[in-house]
Deep mutational scan, measured.
Amino acid sequence: EPLWIRPDAPSRCTWQLGRPASESPHHHTAPAKSPKILPDILKKIGDTPMVRINKIGKKFGLKCELLAKCEFFNAGGSVKDRISLRMIEDAERDGTLKPGDTIIEPTSGNTGIGLALAAAVRGYRCIIVMPEKMSSEKVDVLRALGAEIVRTPTNARFDSPESHVGVAWRLKNEIPNSHILDQYRNASNPLAHYDTTADEILQQCDGKLDMLVASVGTGGTITGIARKLKEKCPGCRIIGVDPEGSILAEPEELNQTEQTTYEVEGIGYDFIPTVLDRTVVDKWFKSNDEEAFTFARMLIAQEGLLCGGSAGSTVAVAVKAAQELQEGQRCVVILPDSVRNYMTKFLSDRWMLQKGFLKEEDLTEKKPWWWHLRVQELGLSAPLTVLPTITCGHTIEILREKGFDQAPVVDEAGVILGMVTLGNMLSSLLAGKVQPSDQVGKVIYKQFKQIRLTDTLGRLSHILEMDHFALVVHEQIQYHSTGKSSQRQMVFGVVTAIDLLNFVAAQERDQK
């Protein structure tokens, strides 16, 4: 057995438009009618409502009807409940999964919650491996369901041993009777949507819809739904939504950006999952974080739909894509998950301010006199920076000697690579993860907040409520011999709460 199987392995699926269902090699399930009293909570997966979006479509000038398939009504709160249950049931049916076995899954959280929910009911041990950027709410729900959680670096490539995929496979090879159901490759993922989600949409719309818009992560949702719609409703256009920084969209030119990270969760990847059939997507749109969270908040405030950030991405694209539809036509959007997962993220004004998705003037509360002053007023001194090749031991000596707790790590040209902190280095040394002679590049981390000289002290204040420091950066445009230009970030300084307090105190003292 291989040590790991690539999540982007070539698909062996034989589905073709027009091929009889009787030739399918898979076990198919028909939607079942729910009894009045459910035998367990797993029976509350599927049969989610279709809700008309009344205000947002009109606000953006849509002539067509805009409908939302509300997947956050599933038992675990997301569309991923469907595939989690289906993968477990299919693994039980073919004898792969037996009582007492362990389920391991690399996930952005929602599939993990679905699997942990099913594992709690069915009696399996469950280990979820997820990147650090995923919300604390997801972690809390997983723990409450009895799952064990392993976190991995957000910026690790999918084929790196440190990625959530790599760590999951390492655990599988170490733990007896453990299984990775593997949402990236498992046919049960798109089949769950082909058999149930798509049929529900067709039934709820009486077979009449002209466009379907869905955000894409593993691709199982859009693949399964689109294949069924292509068979039953061939005139329906399928629109895929991919965040900026991901590479799922086609044509490839759409993916060209210097951005590699994004805040919206559960969609987009740096590889093409095996289950994603991009041939059934008629057109791709890219979405960005700001519009995703703005539209998610709009869905909550104006439509009462308590959905997550990827739902915002989907609707932001839908109001663009559906401009081509006329009166009497219908566009369906998939709202994948609930706001429950993001209470401390985009639902929080403070978080939105820190990330730059909300401006101070958007909030009406009274601010102190210094709130709208610029960061450049602080008069920061030149920063202490270190090269990635310097040793951890030497870096600790320098920081202690100069009285700093942290320093930016830059390359020879001064471009920011990340940050090192005294606390992080000492804990890594004590844990045996690094040696004093190791290069400081081994303990770089990139989960820090950046701020510009033109940003306000109010925004800085919000950042420092949650973080010990902020890195002050400025952009530099560099022209190359080819005539092309590129933008790079340079370090201007490091600012802490002490710097802000000293500035405010000094100004008030001078005024007296």
Rank of each mutant, 00 (worst) to 15 (best):
G240T: 02
G245Y: 01
A249W: 04
A249S: 03
Q259C: 09
F271I: 01
I272K: 07
V275A: 11
R278F: 03
R278Q: 05
T279F: 10
D282L: 06
K283P: 10
K283V: 12
W284S: 00
F285K: 04
S287E: 09
E290G: 14
E290A: 07
A292F: 01
F293Q: 00
E303V: 09
E303Y: 06
G304N: 03
G308P: 02
G309S: 04
A311N: 05
V315M: 10
V319Q: 08
Q323N: 08
Q329L: 09
V332W: 00
P336Q: 13
S338K: 06
S338R: 05
T344P: 03
F346P: 03
D349T: 07
F357P: 03
F357K: 05
K359D: 03
T364S: 14
E365F: 09
E365R: 15
K366Y: 12
K367P: 11
W369H: 05
W370G: 02
W371S: 09
W371V: 09
W371G: 11
L373A: 11
V375R: 03
L378Q: 01
S381H: 13
S381R: 13
L384A: 04
T385Y: 05
P388W: 12
P388N: 09
T389Q: 13
T391Y: 04
C392K: 09
G393S: 14
H394G: 03
I396W: 07
E397Y: 06
I398R: 07
D411I: 12
E412H: 11
G418I: 01
G423E: 15
N424G: 14
L430I: 15
G432W: 07
V434M: 15
Q439P: 10
V440T: 01
V443T: 15
V443P: 09
Y445D: 09
K449I: 06
L457E: 00
G458Q: 07
L460I: 03
S461A: 03
H468C: 02
F469E: 14
Q476D: 10
Y479Q: 14
H480K: 09
H480C: 13
S481Q: 13
G483R: 14
S485W: 14
S486V: 10
Q487L: 13
M490N: 12
M490Q: 15
G493H: 14
T496P: 07
D499L: 01
V504L: 07
V504N: 15
Q511P: 04
Q511C: 11
K512E: 14
